[in-house]
């Protein structure tokens, strides 16, 4: 019985390819662990003493009202905005040593899409670690970038200027760039914000395939209606952490009420799809 499990596990890993999770990870090391993280832009903290533990190979969501610090939490974990305090651990290692295992997808609106560059060039940015300052872009790099574009259904757009894309297409290009990084942990900031239904479907399919390949996905997520369908782990924040755990036991009416306060009418909660 036990042997059977080991074989199954190995088959899944071989199918997934990439870095084989170490024994420690298989035993439940967190993909991302935050300890007492505090961030402040001014006098008032945007994030206060948040602990979090995102299990490896989960599909996780950060959920909370506008201004709750969801994006800030992600950016501070990545060191994009400075932390007042807090420790970040990735797959059991200090952040700096494991940062090559992370791919980040910023909010689509955070960049200037009139920037003079093509879709394929944006995806190739995901290979920066490999290409460094001066290494030439070779055919295998281009083919890899094209394969990533293909996974998000954008292969036909490779030569387009990025300003010619719709919002949903832009989001898919950003996701393709993250795929090109070949990471183990994917951090996405509102990947479904302002995209069309077809794009949302395409993105969630890619994210689910990542999970099947033993990767970990963490999204800042806005749409409470889709949480149960998309994610298996949730982190509810409103400056402080309100609750964290498996979606089935944590995404509850009580926790939502605590997270959103008066901003979420109970009538609204009643209509939500909550764990049975």
């Amino acid at each position: 019985m036990k042997d059977q499990q080991v074989i199954e596990q190995t088959v899944v890993e071989l199918a997934a390819g990439g870095e084989r999770p170490s024994a420690a990870e298989a035993g439940g090391v967190a993909a991302l662990q935050l300890a007492e993280m505090t961030v402040s832009y001014g006098e008032k903290p945007a994030i206060f003493s948040v602990d979090a533990r995102i299990p490896a190979r989960s599909m996780a969501a950060i959920i909370g009202p506008n201004g709750a610090g969801k994006s800030t939490l992600l950016k501070a974990a990545l060191g994009i905005v400075p932390r007042l305090s807090g420790k970040v651990t990735v797959f059991g290692e200090p952040f700096q040593q494991a940062r090559h295992r992370i791919a980040y997808v910023p909010q689509r609106a955070s960049v200037d899409w009139d920037f003079p560059t093509r879709v394929i060039d944006v995806v190739l940015m995901g290979l920066y670690r490999e290409l460094g300052l001066l290494r030439l872009v070779r055919r295998r790099h281009r083919e890899m970038a094209l394969a990533c574009l293909d996974r998000v259904g954008m292969a036909d757009f490779a030569e387009r200027q990025i300003g010619q894309l719709s919002g949903g297409q832009q989001q898919r290009v950003f996701l393709a760039r993250a795929l090109a990084q070949g990471a183990d942990l994917y951090l996405l900031d509102e990947p479904f914000a302002g995209v069309d239904a077809a794009t949302e479907k395409a993105i969630i399919a890619v994210l689910k395939s990542l999970k099947e390949a033993q990767k970990t996905v963490l999204c800042v997520h806005h749409d409470l209606a889709t949480v149960i369908d998309y994610f298996d782990h949730v982190l509810l924040v409103n400056v402080r952490k309100i609750a964290e755990g498996p979606a089935a036991t944590t995404f509850t009416a009580d926790n939502l009420q605590a997270t959103y306060g008066g901003r979420l009418a109970s009538a609204h909660i009643d209509q939500l799809k909550l764990p049975a």
Partner: peptide, 22 residues
């Protein structure tokens, strides 16, 4: 020429550039 890649990357997308070590 030498700093073309990090310069372009950090001009286009500063947040992402930081996460890949620029």
């Amino acid at each position: 020429v030498v700093f073309w890649r990090p310069l372009k990357l950090s001009t286009f997308d500063e947040g992402f550039a930081g996460t890949v070590g620029v």
